[in-house]
Computed example of a mutant assay.
Amino acid sequence: MTTQERKAVGHRLRQQRNRLGLTREQFAELADIGAGYYGQLEVGTSQMSVDTLIKLSRTSRLSMEYILLGDVPQEQDLTPLQAMLARCTPRELHLAEKVLQLFLLRGDI
Score class of each variant (00 low, 15 high):
T2Y: 05
T2E: 08
T2W: 05
T2I: 05
T2N: 12
T3G: 07
Q4F: 13
Q4P: 03
E5D: 14
E5N: 12
E5G: 06
R6A: 12
K7Q: 15
K7P: 03
K7R: 15
A8W: 02
A8V: 11
A8E: 12
V9G: 01
G10F: 01
H11L: 14
H11N: 11
R12G: 12
R12Q: 11
L13T: 01
L13W: 00
L13K: 00
L13A: 04
L13D: 00
Q15S: 13
Q16N: 08
R17W: 02
N18T: 13
R19T: 02
L20H: 08
L20R: 10
L20Q: 14
L20C: 06
G21K: 03
G21H: 02
L22T: 02
T23A: 12
T23C: 11
R24G: 12
R24E: 07
R24W: 09
E25D: 15
E25W: 13
F27N: 00
F27K: 00
A28D: 02
A28H: 01
A28M: 07
E29R: 11
L30P: 02
A31K: 00
D32V: 07
G34I: 08
A35R: 04
A35I: 09
Y38Q: 03
G39D: 05
G39C: 09
G39F: 04
G39V: 05
G39Q: 04
Q40I: 09
Q40L: 07
E42L: 08
E42C: 08
E42K: 03
G44P: 04
T45W: 10
S46V: 09
S46N: 14
Q47K: 10
M48E: 02
M48D: 00
S49H: 11
D51A: 14
D51G: 13
D51T: 13
T52A: 14
T52K: 05
T52P: 01
L53Y: 02
I54C: 10
I54G: 11
K55R: 11
K55I: 04
L56Q: 00
R58D: 14
R58E: 15
R58Y: 08
T59F: 03
T59A: 14
T59I: 06
S60W: 04
S60A: 13
R61T: 14
R61S: 15
S63F: 07
S63G: 11
E65I: 05
Y66Q: 15
L69W: 10
L69E: 09
L69P: 01
G70E: 13
V72F: 03
V72Y: 00
P73M: 05
P73Q: 02
P73W: 03
Q74G: 08
E75P: 00
E75W: 00
T79C: 07
T79N: 09
P80K: 07
P80Y: 14
Q82N: 07
A83P: 01
A83M: 07
M84Y: 06
L85A: 01
A86C: 03
R87M: 15
P90C: 11
P90I: 10
P90M: 13
R91N: 15
R91F: 15
L93M: 06
L93C: 08
H94P: 02
A96T: 06
A96R: 01
E97I: 09
E97G: 07
K98M: 08
L100F: 06
L105Y: 11
L105R: 13
G107L: 08
I109H: 10
